[in-house]
Computed example of a mutant assay.
Amino acid sequence: MNYKIGEKVTFMSEAGYAVIQSFKDANTVIIQDETGFNRDYPISELVKIQSENYAGGGYADKDNIEYEAEIKHTIKEQRLDFDTTDKQQVWEIDLHMHEIVEDDSAYDGGAKLRKQVREFKAFYKNARKNHIRKIIAIHGVGEGILKNEIRTYLDTQEFLEYYDADYREYGKGATAVELQYK
């Protein structure tokens, strides 16, 4: 991917953002991170930020347009640990690319991640709108980038608690979110 001096970028393996200051060599740039420090960084670990609305720590939706999830989610009925009365709906979403799009060959790594994050945000907002009390996001294990992006987004939301989903059912690749309402 071609980068230019002054472009905003985010990292594939850590939270935050930076601005490209200069090119050290063909594989390394000098960036200024959000804290104002300059450091060398491998070009292969950077992703362009496509929106000026980026606030750091995650991907902004382009132009703040409401994004409608294209992905199907599963609805289960189960008795929630925190509610012993009736069974409640639990929504589950699988964020693996092959579940989101039929052919992901047109997506590079950064575009895949942005698509997955947009799908999760739309899913989350839809669950809130429908007063769902628990959702499960299946993000896989991998390098943990998608999991980190999801949890960074959840940290900006109110009235919820999240944790690793049941290991027996999902392994280490899912996050459970309990939503609370006033």
Rank of each mutant, 00 (worst) to 15 (best):
V19L: 08
K76W: 00
H131D: 14
I71Y: 06
H98C: 11
G58E: 14
A106Q: 09
A18V: 02
G56K: 01
H96M: 11
R128G: 02
D33R: 13
G58F: 10
H98A: 15
E66I: 05
A60P: 02
D25F: 11
H131L: 12
F37M: 15
S22G: 02
K125G: 05
Q116D: 11
G36K: 09
I138G: 03
G57T: 01
S51H: 06
A26N: 06
G36I: 06
I135W: 09
I65N: 10
Y54H: 14
P42F: 07
K125I: 03
V141H: 12
H139R: 03
Q21I: 14
K87D: 08
G57Y: 00
Q78F: 06
I43P: 07
A137G: 14
N64Y: 03
G110F: 01
H73W: 14
D63M: 04
L95H: 14
Y41W: 14
R79S: 05
Y124V: 03
H73I: 03
V117L: 11
K125P: 04
A69P: 10
E119C: 12
V19R: 11
M97N: 15
Y124C: 01
M97E: 09
L80Q: 08
A122P: 02
W91K: 11
I43H: 02
I138T: 01
N64W: 02
I31Y: 01
Y59F: 15
V117Y: 13
K87L: 01
F123G: 13
I145N: 13
